[in-house]
């Protein structure tokens, strides 16, 4: 299970940022060839990002490249031809729809074959940021087995819906629920939209708590300063971890007695609650809060 709590956007035409990408502590970085790059510099950004990917060993850092769209005269196809040969972990597709994902997957099939890369090794991260994309999210997810997660883009989505984007985020409640449900059903990551005000840590914390409460597994960041806050909020807290341990222990005891269900603090514990407890344990392990297997720990 790849830990993908934070995905940090970095402008693709900024050499200083690209070479420092690994030091900020994000789980993933998104080298942006789309909104963060001036239209006259798209070619330069594409070449710079390709060279960065070919030069630096980003070690544990997942490298994702947001390309331009395939439609409206944008240069998405040129981006893919240049970038995919440098083997990023994933390509992020803006304003995704099922048909565009299929075009991207087809290009990747062809490039992986030409370059002798294992088929399907470059993943796809669709960006759901239109009303159409949100309504057709299941079709997007099922359009390629390369899809490893969905990023919700609330700025473009609210613009498309003709509504105001607010810090409290009530207007994206439905979109968040839709993205989380579709992603969980498909077993992929649901990544929340970035919080746009990099100078409001309290607002970021509240926004991340909301995303977490709805089931988002990670959150995009637009500034390295946002990373620690997001990691803190998304990591399981001590009470959650202790409860998970008690659930696991109780189920192990029940198993010894041949029972599939047991009561803990007056509440029924069964398979789904055990699965959630194990998931909490895994997240705690990945976040470095605990180590070892839960079986070992719960003895």
């Amino acid at each position: 299970m790849k830990l993908r709590r934070t995905m940090l956007f970095m402008p693709g035409n900024n050499p200083g940022m690209l070479q420092r990408a690994g030091v900020f502590g994000a789980d993933s970085v998104i080298f942006d060839l789309e909104d963060a790059v001036n239209p006259a510099e798209k070619d330069a950004a594409r070449v710079l990002v390709r060279n960065a990917l070919q030069t630096f060993r980003y070690e544990m850092l997942e490298t994702v490249v947001r390309i331009n769209s395939f439609s409206g005269g944008a240069c998405g196809e040129a981006d893919v031809h240049e970038i995919a040969r440098a083997k990023p972990a994933a390509i992020m597709l803006p304003k995704a729809a099922g048909q565009e994902v299929k075009i991207l997957a087809g290009l990747l099939d062809q490039i992986e074959k030409e370059e002798g890369l294992p088929g399907g090794s470059i993943k796809i991260f669709p960006l759901v940021e239109t009303a159409y994309g949100l309504v057709h999210i299941d079709a997007i997810i099922s359009s390629s087995p390369r899809i490893t997660g969905i990023l919700l883009g609330a700025e473009d989505l609210t613009a498309d819906l003709g509504i105001k984007r607010t810090k409290s985020g009530e207007e994206i409640f439905y979109a968040r629920c839709q993205v989380v449900t579709a992603c969980k059903a498909a077993g992929i990551d649901a990544i929340d939209t970035p919080f746009a005000d990099a100078n409001d840590p309290e607002g970021l914390k509240n926004d991340t708590l909301k995303a977490k409460s709805l089931g988002m597994t990670g959150k995009a960041a637009i500034n390295p300063r946002q990373i620690d806050t997001i990691h803190e909020v998304l990591a399981p807290d001590e009470a959650e971890i202790k409860y998970a341990q008690r659930v696991i222990r109780a189920m192990q005891e029940a198993g010894k007695e041949g029972k599939g269900v047991v009561a803990l603090d007056g509440k029924m514990i069964d398979a789904p609650i055990l699965a959630r407890a194990r998931n909490t344990w895994e997240k705690a392990k990945q976040a470095g809060i605990r180590s070892g297997s839960y079986e070992e720990y719960s003895r």
């Binding site: 050499p15 070479q19 070619d43 330069a44 070449v47 710079l48 390709r50 060279n51 960065a52 030069t55």
Partner: peptide, 17 residues
């Protein structure tokens, strides 16, 4: 203060243009 990868990228872009 460009690193090698940036020098390569900028020369390539200028030549392509």
């Amino acid at each position: 203060g460009a690193l090698d990868y940036t020098i390569r990228a900028r020369v390539e872009t200028a030549v392509r243009r």
